[in-house]
Every structure is written in structure tokens, then in C-alpha cells.
């Protein structure tokens, strides 16, 4: 098991290098080190000498990928790519264009993101599984038919509608919760209600439909028929056997997105004024702060890879028959 995790972790390294090359290219195609220097040094009366000094000071005087002047291995080591990317691997993201430390900001901002994303995920799962189970119970009846239609309709509504509509109704007409804002601690719960609710409602259509298919697939399996043939009550069949077995694909499907919860939701956060990583990213995009965008890309890639790894591990945990070789 441990050996497997180690191997997968090692396999992640070339992938991360690849991601790094992509972000690096995206970054430097647009922003030459000269541009960066000018950005830092301000816009007036900047001399070439100052720019050169700045680049040397920060290690941007080297070539991007290959240093023809150096010898042997050094021709790869003395490059911007080598020096800057190594720092990403230890999660040193450097400074944003506005001069703030990115790692510090990320560590501050991931908690609000989690405060929204985790309840949203859990409640969403609970509600969707319940619905799907109910629909599966009434399979091939008018309830099933209309439930699926409603799911498709819900899926077809833009998430923007849910947000704008939800804010309008709950915040403005009913005045039940604050329209936007955020606060940590117990007092902050009322700020979370609306975004979480909207997130749950927005995702319910597709996930219910998807879980229904999983349940139906499970119910058509031989063992379920056998159990049912024994005359065991339908709800026992559903809860004891179908639910338990169907949870395996559902949960392993969830595991892959777990780490990405840190990244937060772009739209929800900016609409509700939640100071999480999602709105951080949006702000960076709008202010064209490439340093932050690059860091978030790298972070997202790392979390995704962790997610894949967790998925594999969770397979062995829920199903002892699966061996990781």
C-alpha cells in the first residue's frame, strides 16, 4: 500500500513538471522579464540599468529554458525555468504583482472557501442520494418519469439564474438572510446559508439523475434479484443492499473532487463577497495578475493529482477485492 502511494507520488512529479511548463509558457509568452521589471519599478523614468539590476537580483537575467553559456548540467540549471519552478514545488509562490505574498494570502483565504464548499458538498450528497433512492424505488412509474424530466429541467437552468434569483428572493424580498458578506465563527453561519443553499439547488438536477442511474444499474444485478426473490421487503433491499453497494461508485466519484474544494467557487464567492480562493482567483483574473493565476493553476493541479490518488486508495478501502499492484 505504502509502496503504491510512493510510486503514485513519484509519478505525479513528471505531471507537475508538465503543468509547470504549461503555466510557465503561458506566463512568459505574455510577460517578458522586462515587462515584470517595469511593472515592479513603476512606470516613470526607468533606466535600462535598473531593469538589468532588478532582473539579476531576482534571477530573471538567465535564459528561459536553456543556457548556452553554461556547461554540462548547468546549462539547464542556470535558467529561469529551473530556478523559479523549483520554488513552486515547495509551494513558494512568490509575490503577486501588487506585492503581496501569495502563499500567505492563499493560507488565509482557503478557510472561507471550505466553509462554503464542504457543507455544500455534504448537504448536496445527502439530498441527491435521498432523491435518487426515492426515484429508484418508484422506477418505471409516472413519479420516475416526471422526476427525471424535472432533473433535466433543473440541469438546463444556468447557475447564474440560481444565484441572481436566490439573492433577489431570499435577501431582498424575504429579508431572511444577509444579502452578502462573510464572517468567521458561529456568527458567520447566517452568511453561509444562502450560498450553500443555492449551490445545493443548482447541483441537484444532474447529481440526482446520475445517482438514479447508478441505483438502477445496481438493482438490475443478479444478487439483488436473488435477495428480492427470497421475499425480503423492498425497503430492506434498497437500504441494505442497493444503497450500500451503490455508495461505492458515488463516494469514489466524490473523493476526486475533495481536494479541489479548497479552490472554492469562482462565481458564488464573488457574488456573495466571500473572501475565499475563488474570489481571489477572479480578482486576479480581472486585475490580470498573472503571478496569482499561475500559482492557482499549480495549486489546482497538485490538488487534482492528490484527488486521483485518493480515489485509487478509496477503491481499496471500500472494496477489498481491488488490489493495487
Amino acid at each position: 500500500m505504502i509502496a503504491y502511494i510512493v510510486r503514485r507520488a513519484l509519478y505525479a512529479i513528471p505531471i507537475l513538471i508538465g503543468v509547470n511548463i504549461i503555466t510557465f509558457l503561458l506566463f512568459f509568452v505574455v510577460n517578458t522579464p522586462d515587462d515584470m521589471a517595469r511593472m515592479f519599478l513603476g512606470q516613470k523614468h526607468v533606466t535600462e540599468v535598473q531593469i538589468e539590476d532588478w532582473k539579476t537580483e531576482r534571477g530573471y537575467h538567465n535564459p528561459l529554458f536553456y543556457n548556452a553559456d553554461a556547461e554540462g548540467l548547468d546549462s539547464f540549471k542556470e535558467t529561469i525555468f529551473y530556478t523559479k519552478s523549483l520554488r513552486l514545488f515547495v509551494f513558494d509562490f512568490g509575490r503577486s504583482d501588487s506585492g503581496r505574498d501569495i502563499s500567505f494570502d492563499i493560507s488565509q483565504r482557503m478557510w472561507p472557501s471550505l466553509a462554503i464548499a464542504v457543507p455544500q458538498l455534504l448537504i448536496g450528497l445527502l439530498v441527491a442520494i435521498t432523491f435518487a433512492l426515492l426515484i429508484a424505488f418508484f422506477r418505471a412509474t409516472y413519479i420516475d418519469y416526471w422526476a427525471v424530466v424535472i432533473c433535466v429541467v433543473l440541469m438546463s437552468i444556468s447557475s447564474l439564474f440560481y444565484i441572481i434569483g436566490g439573492q433577489f428572493v431570499m435577501g431582498k424580498l424575504l429579508r431572511v438572510v444577509p444579502i452578502s458578506g462573510f464572517e468567521s465563527g458561529i456568527f458567520g453561519i447566517k452568511f453561509l446559508i444562502l450560498p450553500v443553499l443555492i449551490g445545493v439547488v443548482g447541483g441537484i438536477g444532474s447529481s440526482t439523475r446520475w445517482y438514479r442511474t447508478i441505483f438502477l444499474e445496481e438493482m438490475n444485478k443478479d444478487y439483488v434479484r436473488t435477495v428480492r426473490a427470497k421475499g425480503i421487503a423492498e425497503q430492506t433491499v434498497l437500504f441494505r443492499h442497493v444503497l450500500r453497494n451503490a455508495l461505492i461508485p458515488i463516494l469514489t466519484g466524490v473523493v476526486v473532487i475533495l481536494p479541489l474544494l479548497f479552490m472554492g467557487s469562482l462565481i458564488t464567492e464573488s457574488f456573495f463577497g466571500i473572501p475565499g480562493l475563488g474570489s481571489y482567483t477572479i480578482d486576479a483574473i480581472n486585475r490580470q495578475d498573472f503571478a496569482i493565476v499561475r500559482s492557482m493553476v499549480f495549486l489546482g493541479a497538485v490538488l487534482y493529482i492528490i484527488g486521483l490518488l485518493l480515489t485509487d486508495i478509496s477503491y481499496t478501502v471500500v472494496d477489498p477485492r481491488v488490489r493495487l499492484g
Binding site: I123, F187, I189, K190
Partner: peptide
């Protein structure tokens, strides 16, 4: 949850 939380949360 919403209503309970609201009641709890001052």
C-alpha cells in the same frame, strides 16, 4: 439547518 443555524447564530 438554515433556521436552526439562524437561531443559534445570535
Amino acid at each position: 439547518v438554515a433556521i436552526i443555524a439562524c437561531l443559534l447564530g445570535a
